[in-house]
Amino acid sequence: MDIRRWALDSDFKVTLTRPRFTDGLLLVLLIAITILSPRLLPVRSEGDTVLVRAGESVFRIPLEENGPHRVTGPLGEAVIMVRDGEAWLENTPCPLKICEAMGPVRRAGDVILCLPNRIYIRVEGREQTDAVSR
């Protein structure tokens, strides 16, 4: 864009003078904010949906949909409870109940895994990490 032509054609008159110190400061500040903004944002948000994999079937449950959701794995039926933006497993037929002991999930990237009954729950949303070594 030719700023001089723009200035002539518009109602504004632009007088090009030496930039002031504050102009430079403003530029640096805005560029810094632009570059750093992804890092300043909260990186691990509350999720809004849980992805469920039970055996071979995959589906999603909105975290605002309170109530029990029944799922079936190779060992039998289990219940995914959703309440107030959290989800957890109940009444699982697996022997050790480690998945129930994991408690509720809420934040993006949170996972519940029941290996014996092949049920996997993951909260979807903006995640803090690309993967987790567990």
Binding site: I3, F12, K13, P19, L26, T34
Partner: peptide
Amino acid sequence: RSRISGKTPFLILIVLTVI
């Protein structure tokens, strides 16, 4: 008719473009 001094329009354009 208004008057904008310095290179402020340039700077604003550059910054807006980057953003």
